[in-house]
Design a protein around this nucleic acid. Structure first.
Lengths: 145, 145
DNA sequence: GGCTCAATTGAAAATGATTTTCATTTATAA
DNA sequence: TTATAAATGAAAATCATTTTCAATTGAGCC
């Protein structure tokens, strides 16, 4: 999903497309890494200084509620976001512990397991969270040097 | 893992087994649900008042570092803990969105997927996070009434 | 049982992240 | 261009977590 299409989608949902929101969307969609609110805030300082951290929080909340962002669950923080490459599609992440780069993939092959758990436990299952952690090719090279 | 064995393990690792730690371990191992630091703190108020929230944080850190607790990744918080039923063993959780109850399971059948991702992306994979979310049998009854 | 000492505790203060408030500004539709 | 509701930024408020430090205590030793 490009920055432009995220912006259009926002507007389609009845929200204003302000320069601040454009800037925040630019930062997110220009990065392969997952970013926390303060990551985004500090990247904004270069190109679009003056935007408040509050606005970053508010915009992230808005984008998340509109389903235009993915959360990444890694390490300590529960608040690291990523552009959604596959809007609406069920998918998962493979995250590099070195640089934060995220690759995503679609088929998680968990249907059988889900069925088994349902029948064994009596739970109804609504969703799952699956993320792989590792090191990307370039970070592996760095380590081995 | 019982509360008693958690305590013994702590002592084996050279830490003191104080009444506060006992109380915190009791609360955690007496619960089927995952608990945040303040959940634990408020449950302590009944039976063992006077224990400070700081001590809860410190004890949780200690238990986590000793591998005696599991983290649960659900909803907003990154800080919800659970007794470790299977010490040391690789396992995953099935969490009830209604009551917070957690069931765990061992075989996640992700080996093939992991191999495929490794060869397709050039990443080396170190670990994964897999959790299922749903509703347990009793919470399902509540909803349907 | 008392003694010693490092580990542990609790209260308060410090820090850091996030949210709320509110007066001002601005994107958008008419 | 104008009107208006939505959005912004600064400051304050809130909430979670960590640090500091003086007082207490568990555990090994006599």
């Amino acid at each position: 999903m490009t920055g432009k299409s995220i912006g259009l989608q926002l507007r389609r949902n009845g929200f204003k497309l302000t320069p601040q929101r454009r800037a925040i969307i630019d930062v997110i969609s220009g990065s392969e890494e997952h970013l926390t609110p303060s990551d985004i805030y500090s990247r904004l300082q270069h190109k679009y200084p003056g935007i408040g951290l509050v606005t970053v929080y508010r915009t992230l909340e808005l984008l998340e509620n509109s389903g235009l962002l993915c959360e990444v669950h890694i390490g300590d923080t529960c608040r690291s976001y990523l552009k959604r490459k596959r809007p609406g599609e069920h998918h998962h992440h493979l995250v590099c512990a070195g640089c934060g780069k995220v690759v995503d993939f679609v088929d998680c092959e968990l249907g059988d397991l889900e069925n088994r758990l349902t029948s064994e436990t009596g739970f109804s299952i609504d969703s799952h969270l699956l993320e792989f952690m590792g090191r990307c090719a370039s970070c592996r090279k760095l380590v081995s040097k």
